[in-house]
Each structure stands twice: as C-alpha cells, then as structure tokens.
Amino acid sequence: MKITIKKKKNITRVIRKATFISIVIFMVFALVASNEITNNQLGRTAQPLNGCLSTDSLPCTDPSQETILQPFIPNPELNNQQRFLSAIARKLPTIPQPGTYEYILLRAYGAVFVNPDVGIKLPPKDIFANEQETQEFQTTLTMGLVDGTKDCYLQKSAADALSKAQMQQKIPLKSGYGSGDCTRTFNTNFKFWRKYANDQILAKVQQGKETKILGLVAPPGTSQHLWGLAIDLRISNQKQRKSLNQNGWFQTVENDVPHWTYVGLSEDNLPLFGFNKQIVRGITYWITPL
C-alpha cells in the first residue's frame, strides 16, 4: 500500500513538473511572438512617408497610426469651381466671400492651397498685414536650400522638388539672387509693389476694378513668395518646363512668365482639382476656376 502511494506521489510530481515546463515554454513563445510583432511595428514606423501624397497622388501608409491614408480627391460630379473649393476648404480655415479683396487674391494666387504635400505648411490666410506677421509665419517653416544656389531658400519639400527637376535639366533663377527670386520678406514684396504700382492701384484692386496688375506684381503681404512656395525662373525650353511639371511645379499666375508655384500635383490631376488650362503666347498656365 505504501509503495502504491509513493508511486502516485512520484507520478503527481512528474505531472506538475511537466505542466510547469509547458507553461514556461508557452510564456517564452508568447514573448518571442510579441517581440516579433513589436519589431515589425517599429520597422514600419521607421519607414518614412516617402512619396506619400506626392505628385503621383498614390495612397500611402501613415506609420504613426498604422492606417492607410487616401489622398483627397474631389468629387468628379462637381463643377470645376466646386471641386477646387472643396480642396482648398481642407486647408483654409475660412473661404473668402466672392467679391471681397481676399477672394480676388485667392483667385490669383490660391493655387497652392490644393497642395497635398504633407511636408509643407500653408498660411492660415492669403494676406499678411505686415513684416511682423509675415516673420511669425516664416519662422515656423522648415526651409531647404535649392541645389546649385547660395541663398535660394524655399520650404524644404518645394526646394527638394525643384532640386529634383534641376537634376534633369539646368534651370537658372530669373535674376540669380535667391533672396529676390525665392522666399521673400514682407518688405521685399512691398518694394516690388512700389516699383510697379501705388496706393491708387491698390485701392482699385481691393474694389475689384483692377486685376491685370496681379499678373505682374503681388500687392503687399499677398505674394506666394512669402510662403516659401514660389520661385522666379528663367525658362527657355520645353524640356525645362516638363522637368518642373513632373516635380509638381507649374505656372499658375497668368502673364507672370517667370513665376512658378509649387502645387505638388501631377499635371494629369490638375483638371480633377478644377484648374483651367490656358495657353497665352505659347505658355501654359493652370488657372484657378474662381
């Protein structure tokens, strides 16, 4: 009887030991699996948003949220104006009312507000009141030097896109002075305006009685150059234009020949966002439908 009881105790110990070993093995397996998942997540998190919302407008992965982000695409059933407004409404806190000075400026210089590039920062409005307000915005920007220049700075995504275009074709600045051709200060914008216009013309622009001047020079505080998303270039052939277009740069201000805007879309997508194609004296402009 005692031998039987002893055998039972030995069997119980074996069972307990086997159970303990099984639990340990399970825990080790679980930790390894968990670690593998964590490493995979970290690997995905480390992947940059390279090409996300680029000129190809392809879906991409947001590694911080592990979700698929689908670039905004306007409803094709809407008319051009409605598609354009639906796109910029996602970037501008308030859409100006038709007939206002702000709306006039949005029509002339608002192309950039459709830009899907997550690397750029857009202004909260289309008019800066003074130098201080301009500087406060510009100090929040991530800037980059355009390759081949000494002092031509743009928002980094715009600078990178322009540098890619320059790798394909040599594209010189209009004047060669980066501070004037690239990102400008409020005072520089004001000096350009004074060179070509005056307070009387500004009053007419504000009333909607004069708009042609906007294709020559921007009123104080309204230039796309203040946002680090425009540049003046000296273009002499179609290869240069094609290279710029392939990298999201387009001419969007009618009659302003040297002026290029970083829109960040492919040319095929511009009509989808409501842009109107206009050819003036052999130059293709993509005009806002406002």
Rank of each mutant, 00 (worst) to 15 (best):
D232N: 15
N189T: 02
T188W: 04
Q70S: 11
R83T: 02
A33G: 06
A111C: 07
V205P: 01
T19D: 06
C182M: 07
L226T: 05
L233S: 05
L31T: 14
N50V: 14
L290G: 13
L173R: 12
I11R: 11
Y109D: 00
T188N: 11
A218L: 03
I37W: 10
Q65G: 05
Q65H: 09
A111E: 02
D181E: 07
I21W: 14
E136S: 12
N35W: 09
F128H: 04
K204R: 09
M143N: 10
S223E: 00
K2F: 09
D268N: 12
A87C: 14
K6P: 02
G178H: 04
P289H: 03
T188D: 08
S266L: 07
F128K: 00
L290W: 09
I23W: 06
L69E: 13
G110C: 13
I3P: 01
S34C: 12
L270V: 05
I21F: 13
N245H: 15
T252C: 13
R107T: 10
L272R: 11
V217M: 07
N75V: 05
C52T: 14
N39V: 04
L58V: 13
E133G: 01
E102C: 08
T19G: 09
I104Q: 10
I201F: 00
C182Q: 11
T94M: 07
T4E: 14
N115M: 07
P271V: 03
Q169T: 04
Q132A: 13
E254L: 14
Q206W: 02
W286S: 01
G176Y: 10
M143G: 04
T142W: 03
K164M: 08
T149L: 02
K174N: 15
